[in-house]
Structure formats: structure tokens, C-alpha cells
Amino acid sequence: MNTAVEIHHLVKDFRTPMTRKPFRAVDDISLTIKTGEVYGLIGPNGSGKSTVMKALLGLVRPTSGSCQIFGNDSLRVDSRHEVGFLPENPYFYKHLSGEETLRFYGKLCGMRGKKLQTRIDELLELVSLDKARKRRLGGYSKGMLQRIGLAQALIQKPQLVILDEPTAGVDPIGSRQIRDLIFELRDQGITVFLCSHLLEQVQEVCDQVGIIFEGKMIKEGSLEELISVENQTEIILQDASPELIAQIEALASSEAQVIRSGKPRTTLERLFLTATQSNSSQPPS
């Protein structure tokens, strides 16, 4: 497996006026993302996640250390040919329509003509904005802006997609659509690097996770390794009779300690999605 992203001992200090001591936003962070992986960088607000992403995109210059994208130094403009970026709370030119926005970003990537038009049509379909293609972005909702942002990030078919808080402020349905898109990207072999403080979302989509706190990487590894409780086992049964459950519990308690038994709970999000989807499929009364 090749390396998509390599961050090597990244340090970023910001000078603040009137103070002699600089503020260290990122403190000696190293991480590697393999091609095709979905990597989630999680941490509280102000922990340095966005600064790491900006350093990777050449928007800030590392104080020390280096960032590489597919072997290219991220400060080089060339390295951005294979990168798509969705900034946090993106605002694009309000005077452009959805279609014009994608055309603008496509042209910046050197695309033109029929190839660009085909790609625009594909992406508007993918992010479900085909009907709003002629509408100016000034009239888009937050979720729509996020989706057009994702479409612009994908315009040149990049091999690495960087998403900064991709579902911030988006309703559960929009959030689910974005999550499905991330799965789709992973299936296509595209590397995804996302940062978020919505832990459940990261857990659902990421293969690898890094936890950043006060600029330092405090934990990193595969999601399975990090979240599995090694000395516990979970068995989920469907249509089991109370007698069978009693037998299993009796058998288990003779050999091990039964910590909890009962009906698994769905998440509130799943409940919301099921309720809204079944409601929307019914004709309005």
C-alpha cells in the first residue's frame, strides 16, 4: 500500500502581537495515511486539527517538520493536483450558481469543455443538487452549501480528499448523505482525511483515528484496536425466546461475569432517519 499523506514532526507556532512567546498550535505531530484509507483526526475545538489540515494544503507554513502528499512537499502547488478540500463552514461565491461554482473550480484545475461539463453533471447528481444547479449559492441552505463544497472538492477526481468538519451544522439527513458519500469515495479507493469532533460519525466511517489534544497527538491507531474492549464479548441474537436467553445467561454466569443483558438500543439518529424517511414516502394527507 502506498502512502498518500506523510506528516513528519510537524510544529506550528503562531506569533501573537504584544507577546514575546509564540502560541504553539501544533506540537510535533507525525502521521501517515495509506492510500485508500479513511483517516479521522479528532479532538476538541482549538486542538490544532484545522492547522494540521492547512499545513497539509500549504495554507500555513510549518515552523518545523514537513508535510507530503503522494511524495510531494505540500508547499508546492503541484501537490494540490491530487487533493480536494472542503473547508469548515464553507462559503463560496454567492453570486455564482451551483453549476457555475463547479465550472469555476474545474477550470482552476485546468479542466474544460465537454469533459468538465460531464463531470459537473455527474457531481450535481452525486450530491443531489441537480435541481438547484441554476440557483445562486446565496439562496442555498447550509446543507446544500456543504454538499456543493464536497462536489467542488471532487471536481478534478482527486486521489486524496480532505474534509474539515464535513457535517458541522448539517441536519441528520444531510449528515447521512455526506457519510454515504465518504463510503462511496472509500469504495473507489480514494483516500479521505477528515477532522471532526463528532465522534460517532468518525467511528462509523474511519479506518484509522488520531486523537489530538492541545496540539499533541495523544493516541493513534486503527479504529478496531482503539475502541474494542479486549476482555469483553458481545453476542446479538434475533428472535431469541426468553427461555433461550435465560439458558445462555445461566451458562455464561457459571464461566464468566455477565455485565449486561437486554435489548440493544438504536441510536437517536437512526430513529430520526427511519421516522423521516417513512414519513416522506407517505403521500401528504
Binding site: G58, G84, N89, F92, Y93, L108
Partner: peptide
């Protein structure tokens, strides 16, 4: 933040 999305392209 429009500049972020522009400069993150090969511009």
C-alpha cells in the same frame, strides 16, 4: 474562506 478552496486547488 473562499480563498481556502481556491488556493487548495493547483493555483
Amino acid at each position: 474562506r473562499t480563498l481556502y478552496s481556491i488556493l487548495s486547488k493547483p493555483v
